[in-house]
Structure formats: C-alpha cells, structure tokens
Design a binder for these strands. Structure first.
Lengths: 343, 343
DNA sequence: GCGGTGACAGTAACCGGTTTCAGGCGACCA
DNA sequence: TGGTCGCCTGAAACCGGTTACTGTCACCGC
C-alpha cells in the first residue's frame, strides 16, 4: 500500500479496466466477472486505494454526516448526550459534526454553515435563535433536543414536568418540608425552565407559597458549591431543602453542606435531576429523577437519519420520553436495603 | 429566499451571466463589474443561494474539517479538550468531526474512515492501535494528544512527570506521610501511566518503598466513590493519603471520606490532578496539579491546521506544556488566605 | 490608424466519484 | 443459421462547485 491519493481513474488504468468497473467492485454493486473483480481488487490492495469521501458524497447528493449543536459542554449530561447521538450515527456510517456555540456571537451563522455540510442537525434547546432554527430547517431535517422548536420543527425531550412535580410534592407532602429553594437558572435552558415551573406548580397544588425566585446558577458542580456558599453561609435562615436543577449542582451543594458539617438529610434535604452515576454512590445517595439522556439523543439521531433518508425531508412529530423519580437517602427517605450501588 | 437547492448554474442562468461570474461574486475573487455583481447578488439573495460545501471542497481538494478521536467522554477533562479543539477549529472555518471509540471493536476502521473525511486528525493517546495511527498518518496530518505516537507522529501533552513527582515528594517529604496509595488505572491511558510511574519514582527518590499496585479504577467521580469504599471500608488499615489520577476521582474519594465522617486532611490526605473548577471550591479545597487542557487541544488543532495548509503534510515536532502544582487544603497545607474562590 | 494593454466575461476542463446507457459477446433456442 | 436474451463492460454524463485560458472591447500612446 503506497500513498492513498489514488483516484478511480488511476486504479482503472492500472487494472486495465474502466472506472465504472472499479466503482462497481469497490461498492459491490452491479455485475462483475470474477476475473475483473480479481484484477481490480489486486490493484486496490496493492496501492491502498480508498475512494474519496467527497467525490462519493457529491455523486450521492448526501454528506453522510449529522450535526449536533449545543451551547457548551458541561458535565455528564452533555457527554451522555453526545455519546448517545454518536453511537446511533456511527453505525449508519454518518460522521458527527459538533458545534459548540458557547458565548459566540456568530452562532447563528455557524449553524447555517453547518447546515450545508450535513444531512441533518440536532440542536439542543435554547442554543440558537428561532429564526436561525427555521432557516436551518429549510435546508436539512432538524430536531430540537430537550426543548421545543418553533413552527413544526420536531423535538425530543424528557418529561420534566411530571417528575419534578412529583418530586416537589414528595418533599412537601410526604416529608412535610417547607422552605424549599430551587437552584438553577430557568433562563439558561428550556429544561430548567420547565423544572422551575413544575416546582412552583407543585407548591400551588398544595396551597403553599413557592419561593419567588430561584437561586440562579449555572449547571456545574462548582456552581452547586457556590450556591451552597450562598445559601448556607451565616446570616440568612437555612432552607429545609434544596431542589437542584441537575445532579451536578446537587453534588456541589452536597459537598458544600458536608464540608460545613451539616448532616444530610437531617439538617438539609438535597435533590437532583438526571441520575448521573455518582448520584447513587455518594453518601447519602441522592434523590433525583432519572432521565434517559442517551436514549434521548439516540432518538434524535434516528429521527434525523430517517428524515434524511427520504426525499420528503420531513422529520415526524415530537417525542416525550418518560422519566422516573428515584428516591434515595438525601431527601430523608430510608436508604435502599444496603449500601448497594444501585447502578 | 426560496429553497436553497440552487446551483451555480441555475443562478448563472437566472442572472444572465456565466457560472464563473457567479463563483467570482460569491467568493469575492477576481474582477467583476459593478453591474454584473449587482445582478448576481440580486439573484443570490432572491433565491437564497448558498454554495454547496461538497462541490466547493471537492474543487478545493480540501474537506474543511478536522477530526477528534477519543476513547469515551467522561468528565471535565474531555469536555475541556473538545471545547479547546473546537474553539480553535471553528474560526478557521473547519468543522469538527468527533469519533468516540468507546468499547467499539471496529475503532481502527472507523478512524481510517474518518481519515478520508477530514484534513487532519487529533487522537487522544491510547485510543487506537499504533498500526491504525500509522496508516492514518499516511492519509492526513495526525497529532496525538496526551500521549505519545509511534514513529514520528507528533504529540502534544502536558508535563505529567514533573508535577506528579513534585506532588508525591511534597506529601512524603514536607508532610512526612507514609502509606500513600495511588488511585487510577495506568493501563487506561498514557497520562495515568506516566503519573503512576512518577508517583513511584518520587518514592524511590526518597528511598521509600512505593505501593506495589495502584487501585485501578476508571476516571469518573463515581469511580472515586467506589475506590473510597474499597480503601476505607472496615478491615484493612486506612492509608495516610490518596493520590488520585485525576480530580474527579479525588472528588469521589473526598465525598466518600466525608460521608464516612472522616476529616480531610487530618484523617486522610487526598490529592487530584487537572485542577477542575470544583477543586478550588470544595471544602477542603483540593491539592492538585493544574494542567492546561484547553490549551493542549487548541495547540493540537493549530498544529493540524498548519500542516493541512501546507502541501508537505508534515506536522512539526512534539510539544510538552508545563503544569503547575497547586497546593490547597486537602494535603494538609494551610488553606489559602480566606475561603476565596481561587478560580 | 495601429499595436498594445488592461479590465472583464464566458467556455470548458477539472476535482473524484457514481450511474445511465449502449454495445459486445456467448449461450440458448427454434 | 439467425434471432433473443442476459451478462458483462466501458464511454460519457453527472453531482456542484472553482479556475485556467481565451476572447472581446475600450482606451491609450505613438
């Protein structure tokens, strides 16, 4: 195998056949005699020929690629998302292009540029403007993940409302807690926005006045530690429970609380959202909501692949995947049977 | 703007000019009279024409894309890596293809396939076989990140040895600790392998016998919790210090230790590696080694872009970025001035 | 008036594949 | 022996851009 900068025409010449035959052999399409096939394969093998993706894609009118757009990478949620998406795309021989719009002002343009390089795009909710989303959708199939798209752009998301409402109700009714705070920034993502709304709703359901404002922080563990600083430091009365927008924040709050010598759940109840691996393992184990993140992304990839495969370019309707309330020790529920992993 | 499935030739016909003129206008190259330019721009605007990336790339003989290959996504380290890489690629109008080989048996093939779709690839050390790496390098410029490549494949990595040796020496000599354990799997990645070797080396430097085996776990927080279970649970004598292969493991161990009522650093010293944001914020703050992960990845992207820009396809030599020992409370050093963030 | 020059536009080749279509050829049948 | 049919092969068109090259025309100086 020499240089791989061989073209069909060169291989054809070397094998003494036509380019059509080389193409047929390398794709396994059409009828080719044994003798021809042997000659072609020999030449291909000898020179390490591999057809160029660009030529192939151009002829096929298909890029063989999917795009994934997200605001920024933070924590297990996004890594799960990426892996779920990727694991669905790769077996379909589609490569995965990522675009991380994080704080970039020209995000919309970059997304549109991506639209010319892939066969379909999954956009995490709240990442780009509705206008850009709509324009993108005129170019390629688009799916919004964890959020809702404008127009009839389909979406794939988890059931935030049901579980968060159940979780909050559990704290308020079953554990008879008052003075809950919500940690997370509703303006930061559609998911958090829904969770905050459901948190308030659960209060109203029971005729309890919810807090007026959330503790608006970002979504990483460090932000949870900061929130703990803010909530537990000195002067203000300590809340009875901290309902966090995700597990990472919750783990940060947990570390902050334990580091201050507080006992969880006796002195402070903490809950998360996502059920990341660490949630089951910390002491006390974290009460949270299990969300099928990987599946969510895989479903998005499937939708796009299906739509890209058809001429009609129309991804089918939206999808809401179920979530599951996971009660563990950090809300005051008895810890599971033994200190088992629960993984 | 109607459908974007317009071609140069259609636009040319609509504007009453030749394709060459359309191309010149849309690229801003060559000389075009004001009148022609106006007509073309009008047609482009009216029909929402955007040149197809495939045709362009084919003509240019360049994909306009870089690849990034990693074993699996876990934690802040990889998210930083991706973001660093991406933030360098995007301004150069290169899209980023990712490939997550995680447990896939056909990883080598998939990497070679990627080699036909991009202008260059960065591979995280220890992700694919040396053979695949060498073949990949015959197709496109390749850089190994956090590890060493076979042959003359260039690499970009952080100085693991110097800092880990200094850190271990600090624990042994300055804090006079014995019975240190190392948590991390040297076989899992070149980075950990170097850190484990440096940990042992520091022992030998001082004539102290290092532990024969590391506590081999993966690199996530949950794995740290598991390691804590294993190390602190009951029967065996508790080690004096736990040197972790990264901060996530360390945070897991910390949570595990605090959850058991141990005091850190009085009862147990814990150190990490990476200096993730949470490291400075937990109580006690984590002694660790700061590693410029984002810069590492950005440097890799720059190397590849440079090599891809030249015909010679030869990325220049390797690069070792400096790291920095960060002493905080978890090793027994006095906590920094106040509880400040140190971020 | 003529040759030279510079600005601009268009034709056609090219990038590297796939695929249509037409034709050659042997087998088989009447 | 002539006619069909089916299998195989190759020439050429095509995918959607870019660009080398050719040509036209106006304007300039001598």
């Amino acid at each position: 195998m020499s240089n791989s900068r061989m073209t069909v025409r060169e291989i054809a010449k070397l094998a003494g056949v036509s380019v059509a035959t080389v193409s047929r052999v390398s794709n396994g399409t059409g009828q080719v005699s044994e003798e021809m096939r042997r000659r072609v394969l020999e030449a291909i093998e000898k020179h390490g020929y591999r057809p160029d993706h660009l030529g192939r894609a151009l002829a096929a009118g298909r890029h063989g690629a999917l795009g994934l757009v997200f605001p920024g990478l933070s924590g297990p949620y996004f890594t799960e998302l990426i892996q779920g998406f990727e694991s669905e795309a790769v077996p379909s021989r589609a490569s995965v292009h990522i675009l991380c719009t994080h704080l970039r002002s020209d995000a919309d343009d970059q997304v549109l540029e991506m639209g010319r390089r892939v066969d379909g795009v999954a956009v995490i909710g709240g990442t780009i403007s509705d206008e850009a989303l709509l324009r993108l959708a005129t170019m390629v199939p688009v799916v919004v993940v964890a959020g809702e798209g404008p127009g009839d752009i389909p979406s794939v998301r988890a059931d935030n409302v049901g579980s968060m409402r159940a979780l909050t109700r559990h704290l308020l009714a079953d554990h008879d807690l008052r003075d809950l705070v919500f940690v997370g920034n509703p303006a930061g993502s559609p998911d958090v926005s829904e969770r905050w709304a459901a948190f308030r709703r659960a209060h109203h359901d029971l005729g309890i006045e919810p807090p007026a404002e959330p503790v608006a922080v970002h979504m990483q563990q460090a932000d949870g530690v900061l929130a703990a600083d803010q909530l537990l430091c000195g002067d203000r009365p300590r809340p009875a429970g901290v309902v966090c927008a995700n597990d990472e924040i919750a783990l940060g709050v947990l570390v902050g609380a334990l580091g201050r010598g507080l006992r969880v759940p006796q002195d402070l109840v903490i809950t998360g959202f996502d059920d990341v691996p660490a949630a089951a393992l910390v002491t006390p184990a974290l009460t949270t909501v299990r969300q099928p993140v990987r599946e969510l992304a895989a479903e998005a990839a499937r939708l796009i692949l299906r739509a890209a495969g058809q001429p009609g370019n129309t991804p089918a309707g939206s999808l809401v995947l179920p979530t599951e309330l996971v009660l563990r020790g950090s809300c005051g529920c008895p810890a599971p049977p033994t200190g088992g992993t629960g993984r």
